[in-house]
Write a protein that binds this DNA or RNA. Structure first.
Length: 270
DNA sequence: AGACAAGCCTGTCCGC
DNA sequence: TGCGGACAGGCTTGTC
């Protein structure tokens, strides 16, 4: 499941292949993603060059003069640059063809992802009300305190809310809370500023480390299998319910918060 | 075989 | 009554 580090790695991986390249065609084989793929609007980009390859939260933005394509990878989506006309497989839903012969292929078995259209000068509804980027200076302890104030929702659910901060999915929410020593079940409004500072730092450092790792494991975006490698990184708690805490060796506890699996150390996290 | 996992949007309900 | 917050439900399919 792509979280922010993987989306950023995808962005930096495809950028050198498609930046300033002219789009020569767009093929939609399966328009039924999370939302219907706006094929007609997308075709406005044929003949145009990609001027920016950006990211906002977990959305990738391919910007041209006539508009911007927004791509969300959902939980099983991936993008690859293909250098020959190999046969599309079952879950290869969309191709963006380029004049230099390469193509960008969108694959998504579960179709939780999305491809959206943003007209020039507009900001799509899906990204217009997102919270700050976790790695930006805008996301600091004051920002998080403001969001926590008076909220009874658990801190884990709060940091996973994209209106609070973008890009923190289940894996990194679990990991960040472990590193900050905060019990994920704790109501957001009842955490000291000091501990929220630790949480902000944990979120930033874990995401940065994951991006660096993604960068080394995923650097070849042409003709690669596209399988992300960051899962293999040593995670402290995610997927380790019942296993010993890496800090105190007591068994990690697993509960469900907001219908999500939540793993933590009942002793180290308060 | 059937439960489960995931991101994240939408709808509903609750209390102030 | 209106509003935000909390939370359940739904989408999908590969994997266990």
């Amino acid at each position: 499941m792509p979280e922010l580090p993987e989306v950023e790695t995808t962005r930096s991986g495809i950028e050198p292949h498609i930046l300033n390249q002219a789009i020569s065609g767009i093929v939609v084989r399966q328009p039924k993603l999370r939302w219907w793929v706006p094929e007609t609007e997308l075709l406005a980009l044929v003949g145009q060059r990609v001027k920016h390859v950006a990211r906002r939260g977990k959305y990738l933005l391919l910007e041209a003069d006539a508009g911007t394509i927004l791509i969300h990878l959902g939980m099983s989506g991936s993008l690859r640059v293909i250098s020959d006309q190999r046969e599309p497989l079952k879950h290869d839903h969309v191709d963006i063809l380029f004049g230099h012969g390469k193509l960008l292929r969108y694959t998504d078995p579960r179709r939780f992802g999305a491809i959206l259209w943003q007209p020039p000068g507009q900001i799509h509804e899906r990204i217009s009300r997102l919270g700050p980027e976790p790695l930006s200076d805008e996301f600091d302890v004051d920002c998080l305190r403001q969001q926590c104030k008076g909220r009874s929702v658990t801190i884990k659910q709060l940091i996973m809310n994209s209106h609070v901060v973008v890009g923190v999915g289940n894996i990194y929410a679990n990991e960040a809370l472990f590193h900050a020593g905060i019990d994920p079940r704790r109501p957001a409004g009842r955490i000291s500023a000091k501990r929220l500072t630790l949480l902000v730092e944990a979120i930033k450092s874990i995401l940065m480390a994951a991006i660096q790792q993604g960068g080394t494991t995923l650097k070849d975006f042409v003709d690669s299998n596209g399988q992300p490698g960051y899962f293999q990184q040593s995670l402290s708690v995610y997927g380790r319910g019942g296993k010993p805490c890496r800090n105190c060796s007591r068994p990690l506890k697993e509960v469900r918060l907001g219908q999500r699996s939540t793993v933590f150390c009942n002793y180290c996290q308060r």
